[in-house]
Design a protein around this nucleic acid. Structure first.
Ligand code: ZN
Ligand code: ZN
Ligand code: ZN
Ligand code: ZN
Lengths: 139, 139
DNA sequence: CACTAGTTTGATAACGGTTCTCATTCTAGA
DNA sequence: TCTAGAATGAGAACCGTTATCAAACTAGTG
């Protein structure tokens, strides 16, 4: 017998619980700002955690695919990551400090779906993000 | 006297009318699909136009800043360009062939503005694009 | 038409963020 | 305690894009 069951063990991503993944998850859980992989790498190192840059990138990518974190692309091509709530939402992100607010747009979802249907498009995904300067950074 | 007036001469971008810029503009005017700089470069070369890659990038960037063309970023980091109508609009873009339809979303504009205001954000811009498979590519 | 100042071009090097490589380390279950 | 194989990390490779800078070209001027 001994049929293999779901291999998932600890965290959501991957099957093994490593010091590096724990550090990353903890760091992300503490912040409500979007951060880049580089930034995260620097922060972890500064905090005494020994992590490789490749691991940061790999884990972040895996977490994104697993839906554990959200990712947005900045105008200059950097990808920023954030631990978000589980429901579908969009973001209002500060270009200066990265702080983000989750917002939902029920109308946007409907609008997107209708536009897709009206034009015969299938497998449509939408990218809907707001970038600006938060109250603090506006001052 | 002889006060300098607006230096703009021919096209919208830059002040000189060159063979390369003409070729680029013509090519863009003929297509309603989004294309990458690389693609554009290959197409122009294949069509007999001698253009340098740097020039394609430079011109496309300038045209984008001037509002002469629209640009969207794909998931894999490429920037695609398209000659669009003058009014503010969003896009429904085919992931496979690049063909795009201009759509407007009055509700989206209002929603974005309200979210920004409600949260004290200033200088807010929105990125709202729909990606899918067009009717042809769906088959 | 000839001349020239200053813009534009293009081959190529450099850049920056991200992904790949692969030998070594570590985890989790037996 | 052992071990299979998952995970790590230093550095190389990658890839779209931008910078460099001498040569070519444009658009006025005389
Ligand atoms: Zn989110
Ligand atoms: Zn801010
Ligand atoms: Zn457009
Ligand atoms: Zn809009």
């Amino acid at each position: 017998m001994s049929t293999e069951t779901a291999p998932r063990a600890f965290g959501e991503v991957g099957r093994r619980d490593t010091r590096q993944r724990r550090a990353l998850r903890e760091h992300l859980a503490m912040s409500d700002s979007f951060v880049s992989a580089q930034q995260l790498y620097d922060d972890l190192r500064a905090g005494g955690d020994k992590v490789g840059l490749a691991t940061v990138y790999r884990t972040l990518q895996a977490m994104t695919e697993a839906g554990e974190v959200d990712a947005v692309r900045t105008d200059d091509g950097e990808t920023l990551y954030r631990k978000c709530g589980p429901r579908h939402h969009h973001h209002l992100v500060c270009r200066s400090c990265g702080v983000a607010i989750e917002i939902d747009g029920p109308g946007v979802e409907r609008w997107a779906a209708k536009a897709a249907a009206d034009n015969g498009f299938t497998e449509v995904t939408h990218v809907v993000e707001l970038f600006g300067l938060c109250a603090d950074c506006s001052a």
